[in-house]
Design a protein around this nucleic acid. Structure first.
Length: 260
DNA sequence: ATGCCACCTTCAAGGTGA
């Protein structure tokens, strides 16, 4: 089975592009980020017509995450525990009935955090700490667990085209990379690092400055797996070709294949 | 230091992202 993660930068604007890709790539589960709409505006019918069930955590104008699943969605929950005052729609989690048993999947849109000297940066770090706390809870279940999304973290120097261009950016900040490491040390494996690990394989290219044409990208979309999911990890891929489609998102899908 | 692009809201221009 294939699980994809894709920051689509507006699900309504991107719908024809998303549909084309789903028909071609046929992922079984899809974690979407930046749907940029409220639940009732989500194009549920279009995805159901392709055989997907939908779990949605939307918000007006900004953020918003969703999970599409060919399998039944047994349970789902929205929002990250730990701050009831946080009204950003950045986290949704579902348990799906995969062929070989239940699989827990989360779609994550981690805050950007720029500029670095601002409350937005503190919000990002706090959000990451809350994610880590929740991940520990989920890992204690000892299930197949997939935490997929736009982490807004450039983890390695070789995950961007020019590290000097990102030196003062919240995506590359020391504290942010340390926190991403700490998340993994809880017992999560980065699927890309486990199965490929090549440098300069990007998941985002800015619309501006001809970033795509110049190859100026960054690798910020990640899929983290519990040991039970890593045991059945077959492969990982980046659907780079979607960046050259009509009306592309600035992000491209990352896909893991699991024997699950 | 800012705009460069593309998205949002609700028709005009400012907020947001990475």
């Amino acid at each position: 089975m294939k699980i994809a993660s894709w920051n689509v930068n507006s699900v309504r604007t991107r719908l024809p592009t998303i549909i084309d890709w789903l028909k071609d790539a046929r992922p079984d589960v899809v974690c979407l980020q930046e749907i940029k709409c409220q639940d009732e505006q989500f194009p549920t019918q279009a995805f159901e017509d392709l055989g997907y069930n939908c779990a949605i955590h939307g918000q007006k104008s900004y953020n918003g995450v969703a999970i599409l699943s060919r399998y039944a969605i047994e349970e789902s929950m929205t929002g990250l525990p730990g701050d009831e005052a946080d009204d950003h729609a950045r986290y949704i989690e579902a348990v799906v009935s995969a062929d070989k048993g239940p699989l827990r999947v989360a779609s994550i849109y981690l805050p950007n955090g720029n500029p670095k000297e601002s409350e937005k940066f503190d919000y990002k770090l706090n959000w990451m700490r809350r994610l880590r706390t929740h991940a520990k809870t989920l890992l204690a279940y000892e299930e197949k667990l997939v935490l997929a999304g736009d982490y807004n973290v450039i983890y390695r120097d070789e995950d961007c085209w020019d590290v000097e261009a990102w030196a003062d950016d919240a995506l590359y900040a020391r504290e942010v990379r340390d926190e991403f490491a700490a998340l993994q040390w809880c017992g999560l494996t980065d699927a890309w690092m486990a199965r490929d690990a090549r440098a300069h394989q990007y998941t985002f290219w800015d619309y501006q400055r001809g970033a795509w044409q110049r190859g100026h990208g960054i690798h910020i979309d990640h899929i983290l797996l519990s040991s039970q999911a890593t045991d059945v990890l077959q492969g990982v891929a980046i659907a780079k070709e979607t960046r050259a489609m009509d009306k592309p998102s600035d992000h491209v899908p990352v896909i893991v294949e699991l024997d699950a």
